[in-house]
Design a protein around this nucleic acid. Structure first.
Lengths: 334, 334
DNA sequence: GTGAAAGCGCTAACAG
DNA sequence: CTGTTAGCGCTTTCAC
C-alpha cells in the first residue's frame, strides 16, 4: 500500500487529476494553496498526489511563473578560505532575496573556468565570479548573462564589478614596518599571472613614497604550501629582507611556517603582513597581522549589483560605491 | 547601432526567427550546433540572435530536453571547514557528472533548515545534506525528492545515507592516550542536540573497555570559540583530566588555544585529539592529532548514492559500502 | 467551486 | 537544408 510502483514515466499533473477525478486546474489550485477550492476536493487531490509520488516539474513551473532567480557563483578554489568566505557571504545575501546559488569551483584551471562559464551561463540568470580569463572571453562565453566580477576591473557595460582597494591600508602597513625599523621589505606576490598584482602595485607605491626599493619579490602559488616554499626563495635571493608583505593570508600563513622552520622569530627577525583578514590568521602562532577586507560586504555588494543588472541590464553602478577598502589589522606578526 | 533597445519583454526564439527570416526550428538548429543547416543561414541567425540579445530560456529548454541534473546541497555552516571540505568534495564529484549544485547554508538554524529543505526540494532533482531535523520532517518537506543524509542514519527508503564510523579510530586514540599514561580522559562533545553524539558513544565504549570512566564531558558549540570556552569549563568540573577528545577539529583548535591561555603545555600537560582530519589541524601549534576522515570520499559517495537513487528510486544501497571510516592521525597534540 | 482553453519558450519528429 | 506540426508540464485567463 502506498508504494508508488516502478513506472519509469514521469508523473504529471494530468495523472493526479485523473486519479482524483478532477481537472488539472483543480490539482494546481490544491497544490498551490489557492483559495478557490473546496476542502474535501483539495484533500482528495493532495492524497492522490502523494499516492502517485507526484512532483511538479520545476521547468514547467518556471516556464510559466518566471520567478525564481538563480545566480551562478564561480570561484577558483572553495578550499581557499578567502573564497570560502566570499561564497558564504554571497550565499547569505542571495538567500535573503530568496535566490538560488549554483556554485562552481574551477580548481584554478583556465579550462575549467571556460567550461563553468559556458555551462553555468546557460543555466542561470546572472553570474558572480572571480575570473582569470580575459574579459572578451568571459563576454563570449556568458552570452548575454549579466556578470559581476569580484576583485577586478572591467569595461563591458553588461558587467558589474566589485573592486578591492588596499592602497591605503598597504601604505599604512609599510609605514608601520618602517616605523619598526625595517628598511628592506619584500613581497610574496601571486604567481602564474602575466602581470604583478594590484597589491604589488600598491606596495611599490608605498615603498617609493619612502624611498624604498620594492623589487624584492617572489611569486607564490595561492596556498599555505605555496607560501611556505616561496619564503626561503625570497630570502635566499634577497638576504637583507626583514619584513614581507604577502599577496594573501594563506600565503602569509605558509610564510609563518617557513620562518619557524628557518629559525627566524616573528616578528623580531622577520615581520609578516598578510592580505584578506581571514579568520584563519587569528588561529596561527603568532597571530597574523594583515590588511583586512570586509568580505561579508563584498558578497553583499556583488549580490546587490546583480540585482541592479537584472533590473536594468547594461546599467552598472558607477565605481565609487562598489569598492571594498582594506584596513590594516595589527595582530602579532608585524 | 547594435544596441538591443530597452524593451522589457523577453526575447524569444520566435523573435530571432522573424528577424532572421527563418523558422524557429532553424534558429534552434543554428544555436545548438546541429548539423543540418547551411553555413550562411546559420551565421545570419547567430547575428540576429546577438543583435536582439537573445538568450534561451533554461526552463523551456529543460522542459523539453529533460537533461541537466541539479542537486541541492544543504549544510549548517559553510565556514566550518568540515563542511567547506564536504562541499568542495561534493562539488567536484557532481562536476564530473556535469551536474549543477545549488548550495544552501542554514546557519545552524532549524528554521532555516526547514525553509531550505522546502525551497531547495522543489527546485532540484535530489538533495544531499547534513540535517538536524527529525527524519519525518525531512521527509515531509522534501516531498518525494531523493535525499542523501551525510553522517547520519535513516529509515525511509527514499533516503540514502553516508555513515561516518569512528569507533575503531577512537578506540585507537584512547589506547594511545592510555599508553601515554593518561587515566582521566575527558570529552568536548557537541552541544544543542538532545542526545550525546555517536562520537561520545564510541569514546565511552573505548573507555569502558579499559575500565575508564567516560563521564567527564562538556558540550561545546561547533566553533573555535566554542571549544575555547568549553575547555576551561571541562577542566574546572573535572580537574584530573589530562587528555581530551573533541567532537571535531574546530572545537579542538579552540581547546588548544584555551590550553595555551591556561598555561597548560600540549601534549605534556594536556593531550588533545580532534575529529575530522581537517587541513586546519596541520596549521596550528602544536599540530593537531585527530581522527581523520576521507572527506573527499564522503562527498564522492554522496554523489554516487544520489545517482543510484535517481536511477532507481526507493532503492538505496545497503549500508556497508556507504561508510567512511576514521583513522587515527597522530601529529603533535597527543 | 470547478473545468476548458490557451500558451509560457523550446525542441523532436516528421514533412517537404 | 528548411519548415510544419506537436507537444514537454504547468498555470493563467475565462467560462460555466
Amino acid at each position: 500500500m502506498g508504494s508508488s510502483g516502478t513506472s519509469r514515466r514521469r508523473v504529471t499533473i494530468h495523472d493526479v487529476a485523473r486519479s482524483a477525478g478532477v481537472s488539472r486546474q483543480t490539482v494546481s489550485r490544491a497544490l498551490n494553496d489557492k483559495g478557490e477550492i473546496q476542502g474535501t476536493t483539495k484533500q482528495r487531490v493532495l492524497d492522490a498526489a502523494r499516492e502517485l509520488g507526484y512532483r511538479p516539474s520545476r521547468f514547467a513551473r518556471g516556464l510559466v511563473r518566471q520567478d525564481t532567480v538563480t545566480v551562478g557563483l564561480v570561484i577558483p578554489d572553495l578550499l581557499n578560505p578567502f573564497f570560502t568566505e566570499v561564497a558564504a557571504a554571497a550565499l547569505e545575501a542571495a538567500g535573503e532575496r530568496g535566490w538560488h546559488v549554483v556554485v562552481h569551483d574551477t580548481s584554478d584551471s583556465p579550462e575549467k573556468e571556460r567550461t563553468a562559464l559556458r555551462v553555468v551561463g546557460s543555466q542561470v540568470d546572472a553570474v558572480i565570479g572571480y575570473f582569470s580569463s580575459p574579459e572578451d572571453e568571459i563576454d563570449r562565453d556568458t552570452r548575454g548573462v549579466p556578470v559581476v566580477l569580484v576583485g577586478r576591473e572591467h569595461r563591458a557595460t553588461r558587467f558589474g564589478s566589485i573592486r578591492i582597494d588596499g592602497a591605503e591600508a598597504i601604505d599604512r602597513a609599510v609605514a608601520h614596518l618602517v616605523a619598526r625599523g625595517h628598511r628592506s621589505i619584500g613581497m610574496l606576490d601571486h604567481q602564474g599571472r602575466p602581470e604583478p598584482s594590484d597589491r604589488h602595485g600598491w606596495f611599490a607605491a608605498a615603498a617609493a613614497a619612502r624611498g624604498l626599493d620594492a623589487s624584492a619579490v617572489a611569486g607564490a602559488p595561492q596556498s599555505v604550501e605555496g607560501g611556505e616554499a616561496a619564503l626561503p626563495r625570497l630570502l635566499a635571493a634577497y638576504p637583507d629582507v626583514t619584513a614581507v608583505l604577502t599577496f594573501n593570508d594563506v600565503i602569509a600563513v605558509g610564510a609563518l611556517r617557513a620562518a619557524r622552520r628557518l629559525g627566524r622569530r616573528v616578528p623580531e627577525d622577520l615581520a609578516v603582513v598578510g592580505f584578506d583578514g581571514l579568520r584563519l590568521g587569528d588561529l596561527v602562532e603568532p597571530a597574523l597581522s594583515t590588511v583586512s577586507l570586509d568580505i561579508g560586504r563584498l558578497g553583499a555588494l556583488a549580490v546587490e549589483e546583480v540585482a541592479r543588472l537584472l533590473a536594468a541590464p547594461g546599467d552598472p553602478v558607477a565605481g565609487a560605491r562598489l569598492v571594498v577598502h582594506g584596513s590594516l589589522l595589527l595582530r602579532d606578526s608585524a
